[in-house]
Computed example of a mutant assay.
Amino acid sequence: MTTRSLIGMQHGDGSITAIYCQCDGYPSYNGKVLRDHYTDTTQVEALMALGEIDVLGQTPAAFMDDAEKRRDIDKNGYPPSKTAAASTYGKNDAMQAAVYVDRDAFVEAARGMWAEYVYLFVNDAWSVRDLYDENTGWAPIDDSISKD
């Protein structure tokens, strides 16, 4: 079972660069990894450069293939040492980072991808929004991790 998410970073003009993540999108996993390992703009930009990912890891470096990913997860558990970029598995149609004009467009795109959560890096801090709970808006990542 997958928990899809969209991970983005907002720029000064309000636009958002974002990537799709197929697995483990809930705050107690993706939220925690983002908070603990993607703490500055350089790291987040490197993550965006990977494009579509299968599993978020501790560093924005792609596995060479699925066998390397499995070995790393067997050795390190979750989170793996690297990020499993879908494009490294020979998928010609892997989605590259996309740019959205604002938060509304970002959230709407996530809904179109059936994402359950969206993460946003703004001013060196992460926030999250649960797309299946219409009564909630954006919240600091720490608040959502404790509820998950």
Rank of each mutant, 00 (worst) to 15 (best):
D102K: 12
T39G: 10
V122G: 04
L47T: 04
R129M: 15
D74E: 14
Y100M: 09
D148A: 13
D130V: 12
I7M: 04
D104V: 05
A46F: 05
T59F: 07
D54H: 03
I19G: 08
E116Y: 08
A46R: 15
D66Q: 09
P140A: 14
V107G: 03
T41H: 11
I16Q: 11
M9K: 03
W126N: 10
A110C: 09
N30T: 06
V122M: 10
Q96F: 11
A109F: 00
L6H: 06
V118W: 00
G137M: 14
I141H: 03
L34V: 05
K75N: 06
F106K: 03
K69N: 07
K147C: 09
H37Y: 13
T39A: 08
D40F: 11
T3E: 09
Q43T: 10
M64N: 12
T42Q: 00
V101P: 04
S144L: 11
A115Y: 03
P79Q: 11
K147W: 11
P60A: 15
Y100I: 00
D54N: 13
R129N: 12
Q58D: 13
G57S: 00
E45W: 06
M1Y: 06
I145M: 01
D66E: 08
T3F: 06
D65M: 12
S28T: 06
A109S: 13
D104L: 07
D148K: 08
K82W: 03
Q10Y: 02
C23A: 04
M113R: 04
V33K: 02
G25Y: 10
A94H: 10
V118P: 02
G137F: 14
L50E: 15
L6E: 09
A115T: 01
I73H: 05
C21P: 06
V107D: 07
A125K: 08
T42K: 00
Q96A: 14
R70N: 10
R71K: 05
D148W: 12
S5G: 04
Q58H: 06
L6P: 01
K75P: 00
T39M: 13
N92V: 11
Q10G: 02
D104H: 06
M95Q: 14
G8A: 03
Q43W: 04
H11Q: 15
S144P: 05
